[in-house]
Design a protein around this nucleic acid. Structure first.
Length: 438
DNA sequence: CGTCTTTGACCCGCGC
DNA sequence: GCGCGGGTCAAAGACG
């Protein structure tokens, strides 16, 4: 994916078409984003075309086409009881917003050069009635990894990864997981998680670069944070604690995240081919446990972020079906940027295209491109660069599709694509504006 | 010496 | 009530 980003920038030919900056400038001056985009890209079909036509006519589809890429059209598949919606990476979401359940079913094989699939499978907080399949969004995009976003109250379970994702749109998420697949041989994946928090109510869409941010805010989450806050305070004040008594440990354990927790949990799972058991992701992790879980002969390793005060945890295991695939499950939100050394490693190795050497497993960067923070650091290298959390995200209403962030509290579902494209426009602007070569 | 991994024990929820 | 499975803890050892 890093190569993709690089190629994307390198190959862009402003002489052959309106520059994206020009487009964005026009967009900024024109509130009617849809018309503007349609004028600039006559085949975009953004306005009032039937949804089935919009599906294959996203702005970014056009952009990709201009760059020689093909992004598979939005499609919906009926897989068991769950509709799997496959869309281009963040580009063709308006049909979903307009009517997630009215998308026409289509199938198109994607044997393209640029073939990224991001699957976002939103798990409702309640058991799924057989006659009401879960809202499932599958966003295609990417390089070489599978990202699974889970928003559920289900206990941790062995990751059931469908390895047929290598073929493109064939991934079939389990009910317990959402995943994003991408495949680009011998390259490092990009675009991954700003780690979602526990108990999130909404899932953000992926943006142009497959940056994923997730909102949180349930009561349970607040409790978790309160607990973590207390823990932080203890650490911050260097209070020397005596070894935990059994009672103390019991109390701690009662607040532990694990143990088949029942609170709603939103997680991101990333699946990537790697020789390493713990491919790096741009952050520093400390291993705190290892366990062999039922159904998988490969042990699951537990890590926590070593950044002071950061409570993000993850566990990593090899896929049951394909030992070449490493599946990392992230819990929590990094409220910090990746360590500079990781960013520098990323910069000097990944972007230069050389192979990645690894010192120690927890410092490796094989998955660096999966770190949206790292990506942001690359994309926005200047001091003026926006923090990742400044990039607008588009939360997803679990039950009805995407919703406008401003209307989160009202839970209002976007009724047309205009607002979405405003968001996309903002993201495009943020992304492209800071490109050094533009 | 600081950081990280290893590994057995511990804890809890859940199913029987 | 008991056992199982999953997640975490923390002491000990390894490593640079």
């Amino acid at each position: 994916m890093s190569d993709y980003v690089g190629n994307f920038i390198d190959d862009w030919s402003p002489l052959s078409s309106p520059s994206i900056r020009e487009v964005l400038a026009n967009l900024d001056q024109n509130d009617n984003a849809l018309e503007t985009i349609s004028e600039t890209f006559p085949q975009t079909n953004l306005s009032t075309y039937p949804q089935s036509e919009q599906i294959s006519g996203g702005l970014c589809d056009r952009m990709a086409a201009r760059l020689g890429f093909y992004i598979p059209p939005l499609e919906i598949e009926s897989i068991s009881h769950s509709p799997i919606l496959v869309i281009s990476p963040g580009f063709s979401l308006s049909p979903l917003l307009q009517s997630p359940n009215m998308l026409s079913s289509s199938s198109q094989e994607s044997n393209n050069f640029f073939n990224i699939y991001i699957y976002i499978y939103i798990i409702p907080p309640c058991p799924i009635p057989n006659d009401e399949p879960p809202e499932t969004v599958e966003i295609s995009g990417g390089a070489h990894a599978t990202i699974i976003i889970s928003n559920n109250d289900l206990p941790h379970q062995p990751v059931d990864v469908d390895l047929h994702s290598q073929g493109g749109s064939g991934d079939i998420p389990t009910e317990e997981s959402n995943y994003v697949t991408s495949h680009e041989p011998n390259d490092d994946p990009i675009g991954a998680p700003l780690i979602p928090s526990f108990d999130s109510e909404v899932v953000a869409e992926t943006d142009v670069m497959n940056l994923i941010s997730l909102e949180s805010g349930s009561e349970d989450d607040d409790k978790d944070r309160e607990y973590n806050q207390e823990e932080d305070n203890v650490e911050d004040h260097n209070i020397v604690e005596e070894p935990l008594s059994r009672k103390r440990r019991k109390n701690v354990a009662s607040n532990m995240i694990g143990v088949t927790r029942q609170n709603k949990t939103q997680r991101v799972l990333i699946q990537v081919e790697s020789e390493e058991d713990h491919p790096g992701d741009g952050f520093r992790w400390r291993k705190y446990g290892q366990k062999v879980v039922v159904g998988n002969a490969n042990p699951r390793s537990y890590y926590r972020c070593t950044y002071t005060g950061c409570k993000v945890r993850k566990y990593v295991e090899r896929s049951i079906d394909n030992v070449k695939l490493v599946v990392a499950t992230y819990d929590g939100i990094h409220e910090h940027v990746p360590p500079p050394e990781c960013i520098s490693k990323y910069s000097t190795k990944n972007l230069s295209g050389s192979s990645i050497s690894q010192d120690r497993s927890n410092q490796t960067l094989g998955l660096d491109m999966l770190s949206s923070s790292v990506l942001a650091s690359q994309l926005f290298p200047s001091p003026l660069a926006p923090q990742l959390n400044m990039i607008p995200s588009l939360p997803v209403n679990q039950n009805h599709g995407f919703m406008n962030r401003d209307d989160e509290t009202n839970n209002r579902v976007i009724s047309d694509g205009t607002e979405l494209y405003k968001v996309i426009r903002e993201r495009l602007f943020l992304f492209f504006w800071f490109q050094p070569r533009w």
